[in-house]
Amino acid sequence: MIPFAYQRAGSVAEAIAVAARPQSKYLGGGTNLVDLMRETIEAPAHLVDVTGLSTAIEDTDNGGLMVGAGVRNTALAEHPAVRSRFPLLSRAILAGASGQIRNMATVGGNLLQRTRCAYFYDDAARCNKRAPGAGCDAVGGFNRIHAILGASPACVATHPSDMCVALAALDVTVHLDGPDGGRTVPFGDFHLLPGDSPDVETVLRPGELITAVEIAAQPLAARSTYRKVRDRASYAFALVSVAAAIEVDGGTVRDVRIALGGVAHKPWRAHAAEAALIGQPARSDSFRHAAEAELAAAAPLSGNGFKVELAARAITAVLDDLVEERA
């Protein structure tokens, strides 16, 4: 870790002002950033601690929730409104990391988690995310946990968050504040695909701070779930995960939300699958068909071809379960 100055911000305005200094970074729970600083992958000169800011979860006028960026993962998973109105979000958070880490990690920090790609972590390896233009050693190396959707020749890494997969399935807006004022970004636009510049992972501008995520009211989310498939029974990142909600009327799919984790550089909203399902019979074969529609674009690597079939099966099984539960 390189030496740095630490300052705890008393307000969002103060945080933004302090972070205007070059090489500043906001510090949340530290569960990812501190590790990355120890690895010298992140090397900020100024750390602005924002954990004390925006720690509230509030109902919005239209029945949604405004979740402060400083809310701890545990607090969000535990909140009665989340448990009853957005169970997929509770379940996704509880599927991630460990009890201790969930007590530390913040909502804002969770959005900014960086990939677990081994070549990103090892400074002996080539990585375009760590050193733009260096090349990518993951393509010909260990890429079991890597992307099958939306990757580029420059980067095949995946986003490791569980919580974000649930958020991707919902109508969520990310609230930002920064030197040039506040703005909002739809959650689906917040994270970027790698393209030619995998070092740029979000639309955050220099000095911008996530202040809240706003979850819009969406009745279909009350019956929703999250399924995570991983290499050990707990405390492991997802190989594939599925967050889904479905509304069925008279045996026909009226509305459906599907997002995938562990398959792409960003939490992956399965728009193609959703489009293929609306108006179709709520049956296993249509679920499978929809999953295949989403995965038609899959481009697996040497070590992760299994994820295509795994994702198709997981999507089908999750939707089957939701429909069965409802019936």
Partner: peptide, 24 residues
């Protein structure tokens, strides 16, 4: 932050002390 051996209680809540900066 991968083994839990450093777990302590802060105001009664369990956390990993290796991932927390003391100043926090």
């Amino acid at each position: 932050g991968a083994c839990g051996a450093c777990t302590v209680l802060v105001d009664g809540e369990r956390i990993l002390s290796c991932l927390g900066l003391a100043v926090q």
